[in-house]
């Protein structure tokens, strides 16, 4: 069976207190990381099923075992790696980042992590959504990450009526269209909304994996996880991933205004993937793996002549 060398990595970024950690905890289905009203001064945290235990990685490249996340000094730390099991981690690695625009935290702290990310979710609070300080970040975002980028407008529950939500999202869409392929309005306190985002992430993971050629080559050497651990069998922790047809995954009109459904595929490869997912959404990691294999066959056949074929990298063992 064709197997990917590694999983796509999703970086969750945004202004401080936008809901990044809330979203990651939600995707994991457990309160793994601390979330706060005031800025949480944590270094970037890279959560993966494939890490070898928990470590703190310094800017100088050294690493040491991680004891307590809360006591890690931001300064001199590149990131903290945490190894854990959760259904979503069968599809992607998650990277939580310290907030942008926090006067006490240097933006380079999170921006460094862009190098090792394959896709980005940007969180923006609905009550003050999409300001110049956010736009400035995206104007400088590497084009590679603008593709497949998702804007999650959080705190949807704070909007008093659907008319406000509609007005807001029309403006946000108007202004952010050049930067994001996907726009989601969600309340991170609502289970169904979290399900919706989780589904979206899994679908994206597939799309990104299928253009994995640049995915792997783009990651600088130092940023790759030093050793890939053996894939342990996933243990269900909390949030089951329901892809596609599950009724629970349908956003409620009131809470979620999915302005983009992920269907406008960018390339032939993405179109193929979308087609596959549409016909038979995978319901487990095993099915997902199988589908990836099927996808690779389809892509191998169809896209052979294309320049750097994704298949080569993805297929290499």
């Amino acid at each position: 069976m064709t197997q990917m060398k590694r999983k796509p990595r999703l970086l969750v970024a945004g202004e401080f207190s936008a809901g990044k950690t809330q979203l990651i905890n939600g995707l994991l289905g457990a309160n793994v990381l601390p979330s706060n009203v005031t800025a949480t001064a944590l270094p970037p945290v890279w959560i993966s099923a494939d890490h070898m235990g928990d470590r703190r990685v310094g800017l100088d490249g050294t690493s040491e075992p991680l004891r307590d996340l809360r006591n890690v000094a931001l300064e001199g730390t590149l990131c903290c790696e945490m190894q854990m099991q959760a259904p979503i981690l069968d599809y992607v690695d998650l990277i939580d980042t310290p907030g942008n625009s926090d006067p006490n935290i240097d933006a380079t702290s999170w921006m460094r992590m862009l190098d090792c990310a394959d896709m980005v979710i940007w969180c923006s609070n609905a009550v003050q959504a999409w300001r110049q300080s956010e736009k400035a970040v995206w104007q400088a975002m590497p084009p590679r990450l603008r593709r497949n980028a998702t804007l999650v407008v959080t705190h949807a529950d704070r909007l008093h009526d659907s008319q406000s939500a509609d007005r807001l999202m029309r403006r946000v869409l108007r202004e952010t269209d050049p930067f994001f392929d996907h726009h989601i309005l969600a309340s991170l306190l609502v289970e169904t909304d979290l399900d919706f985002v989780a589904n979206h992430v899994v679908t994206l993971a597939g799309q990104v994996a299928c253009t994995g050629a640049d995915l792997l080559s783009a990651a600088p050497q130092q940023m790759r996880p030093s050793q890939q651990g053996p894939n342990p069998t996933p243990r269900r922790v909390a949030r089951p991933i329901r892809v596609g047809s599950s009724p629970a995954a349908e956003p409620t009109a009131q809470n979620v205004v999915p302005l983009f459904d992920g269907a406008s595929a960018k390339s032939r490869a993405e179109a193929i993937w979308a087609e596959l997912v549409k016909n038979a959404p995978p319901n487990s990691p095993e099915e997902w793996q199988a589908m990836m294999a099927e996808f690779m066959r389809a892509v191998d056949g169809e896209l052979e002549p294309a320049a750097a074929t994704p298949a080569r990298h993805l297929g290499a063992k």
């Binding site: 202004e15 401080f16 207190s17 936008a18 009203v37 005031t38 625009s101 926090d102 006067p103 609070n125 009550v127 003050q128 300001r131 300080s133 705190h155």
Partner: peptide, 12 residues
């Protein structure tokens, strides 16, 4: 200031 994001770099 907005309580949910009191004192950002912009406010400073």
């Amino acid at each position: 200031l907005s309580a949910h994001q009191a004192l950002s770099t912009m406010d400073m």
